[in-house]
Design a protein around this nucleic acid. Structure first.
Lengths: 175, 175
DNA sequence: TATATTTGCAAGTGATTACTCACTTTTATG
DNA sequence: CATAAAAGTGAGTAATCACTTGCAAATATA
């Protein structure tokens, strides 16, 4: 990957996260990345190709992030790790912009990438089964739904504090 | 309100919910509403004015919807009503498009209307206090966060079934 | 009925959109 | 070194964008 190609991706990520996909023009991306507009189309074909490249990178990043959770064998530790992961999405984190973009794209393109979360759902279900919860699958879904809800608040509600909530969740799940 | 003015609002609601705010041009709205494009600007000033009108209508609708919950005195009944409200947001409901737009706008304009939910938060906290939960405020927040998460799933994940989750929530809160 | 106001339309405006193309420069390869 | 492929540019393109203007039709008010 060329230096300029990487710069384009980085600029697009930042601008798409801030202004949205349709709200960001290719000329803005080019100016921000300090390259000619034509280069975007040389490398990515069209604007959607640029978006696809960002999404693909996102899937890789999600896989990496979730791998340490999914392969955890101790059920309590697994739940604890998931809660800690949510906590780390706080605003000053360097991952924040990245995850915000993932959700923004979801709402703008209306494609909820289910299989990205499938492994997580299965691992959580397994954990709740080990802990002998009555409805492990529903417990897993609820926890992932809470994740989506917390992401919404973190991204959209100013001054939202995750800390008290995640502490409370740890107490509830006794982890 | 003129017939045509109402038609514009109705068309804008539908198109904004489907294609997003920046993704919908004023000419598309005009064509869909079968009016001249100029009439939009006569009635609403500019495109943002049209959006504001829709948001304002949304606030009224939210107030109406939540009023029967907020003024409920029986704590268990209050929680039950909230869960039922979430349930009614299922895809074939006529309110679905409306609530989807509310969330889409939130993500596109990045303004989480906190005071719209403030009354709900307070009422829920009061309910959990009456029921002698240890951390009523956190319980209230968690339930509202679950609402946001469920809305995300309902709007973006195909074939998502709320029923099992809401039944599970009723069991958890014993309502 | 006369007049003022509101409602509505068609045809514009300049700016911006995603994208193309002819061209030069850089890099890799035999 | 020669040559081909890849990287990069800048000036285009038609279409679309939000928005304006001048004028006609409908409606309200006196």
């Amino acid at each position: 990957m060329t230096e300029k190609k990487e710069k384009i991706l980085q600029s697009a990520l930042e601008l798409f996260a801030r202004e949205g996909y349709t709200g960001t023009s290719t000329s803005k991306v080019a100016k921000h990345a300090c390259v000619s507009e034509g280069l975007i189309f040389r490398h990515f074909g069209n604007k959607e190709g640029l978006l696809d490249a960002i999404i693909k990178e996102g899937e890789e990043r999600a896989k990496t992030l979730f791998s340490s959770i999914v392969f955890e064998t101790d059920p309590k530790e697994l739940i604890s790790k998931l809660i800690t992961t949510i906590e780390s999405f706080s605003k000053n984190s360097e991952d924040f912009e990245f995850w915000k973009l993932q959700y923004k794209i979801k709402w703008e393109t209306e494609k909820y990438n289910e299989h990205k979360m499938e492994a997580l759902q299965l691992a959580l279900t397994s954990a709740f089964t080990k802990l002998e919860y009555e409805f492990p699958e529903l417990e897993a879904t609820i926890l992932l739904v809470i994740m989506d809800g917390l992401a919404t608040r973190l991204c959209l509600q100013e001054n939202f504090q995750v800390g008290p909530i995640t502490d409370f969740l740890r107490k509830k799940y006794n982890v």
